[in-house]
Amino acid sequence: MTKPMLSIRDLRREYDAGSSRVIALDGVTVDLTAGTFTAVMGPSGSGKSTLLHCAAGLDRPTSGEVTLDGVRLGDLDETGLTLLRRERIGFVFQAFNLISSLTAAHNVALPVRLAGRRIDQAAVMAALDEVGLADRAQHRPVELSGGQQQRVAIARAMVTRPAVIFADEPTGALDNQTSRRVLELLRDLATGRGQTIVMVTHDPVAAAVADSVLLLTDGRLVDHLDGASAEAIASRMARAEATC
């Protein structure tokens, strides 16, 4: 059997809320293989962002286990988690999170610089070329459209050749046409480059671009849809929201 790139076992995350406890994740188990594009959906408060944060080492679960590219995250201290995120994980956020004073090329090179490694300008330009922005390498974020900024963020996420790219609502701030371009790019990274992508989204159209959809409700994994259409995903989401 193919070894999963990301393995999540009985993941549970609880938070203190005054005198009570909030269960954000309630025993989630799933395996994601290399080169797959997975969307995570669910009603508001279902635990999808918490799942992403725990899987990416941004938050520690209360119990359970996350293994990413053969590394058990629970075995790492904070320094080890920081190094893992820098070297084996890429992030794409709704707000782009580009540094306004840096050019596109310098933004893409930032993860390499933070890791203390020599910047390979050819790799930076190759990443920008893959997202169709090699000709905008010297432009700062203010000189780029929202879609171009998100594509720079994707280039930044992929420049270190990470094991997994986590995307949190990557099209949430974009118009429909630009969203399609960004989703096509993520789809091509999975199909053409074998990149593993995990994307949190509320949009059934965006989710339909993925290979599969994980549906969370009240912190539990309640469905796993493979190759579903936007209509089928929307219908399943509506049923999940009706039970909340």
Rank of each mutant, 00 (worst) to 15 (best):
E184M: 00
E184S: 10
L185E: 13
L185G: 04
L185F: 02
L186W: 12
L186Q: 12
L186S: 09
L186T: 08
R187I: 00
R187D: 15
R187E: 15
R187A: 15
R187T: 15
D188C: 00
D188H: 11
D188N: 12
D188R: 14
L189R: 11
L189V: 00
A190C: 08
A190F: 09
A190T: 13
A190H: 08
T191S: 13
T191D: 14
G192T: 03
G192E: 13
R193L: 06
R193Q: 15
R193A: 13
G194Q: 10
G194Y: 09
G194H: 12
Q195K: 07
Q195V: 10
T196C: 12
T196M: 02
T196W: 06
T196A: 10
T196G: 04
I197G: 07
I197W: 11
V198L: 12
V198Q: 03
V198A: 06
M199T: 14
M199K: 03
M199R: 09
V200P: 10
V200E: 11
V200M: 03
H202P: 12
H202K: 06
H202I: 04
H202T: 09
D203M: 02
D203E: 13
P204Y: 12
P204S: 10
P204M: 03
P204A: 06
V205T: 13
V205H: 12
V205D: 14
A206E: 11
A206S: 14
A206H: 08
A206D: 10
A206L: 05
A207H: 11
A208G: 09
A208R: 06
V209Y: 15
V209R: 09
V209H: 15
V209N: 10
A210H: 05
A210W: 02
A210Q: 04
A210M: 05
D211Q: 03
D211M: 03
D211C: 02
S212A: 13
S212F: 00
V213R: 04
V213T: 15
L214D: 05
L214S: 01
L215K: 01
L215E: 07
L215G: 03
L215Q: 08
L215N: 02
L216D: 10
L216P: 06
T217W: 01
T217N: 14
T217P: 00
D218H: 12
G219N: 08
G219E: 10
G219P: 07
R220C: 07
R220A: 14
R220P: 04
R220D: 07
L221C: 02
L221W: 05
L221Q: 02
L221S: 03
L221N: 02
L221P: 10
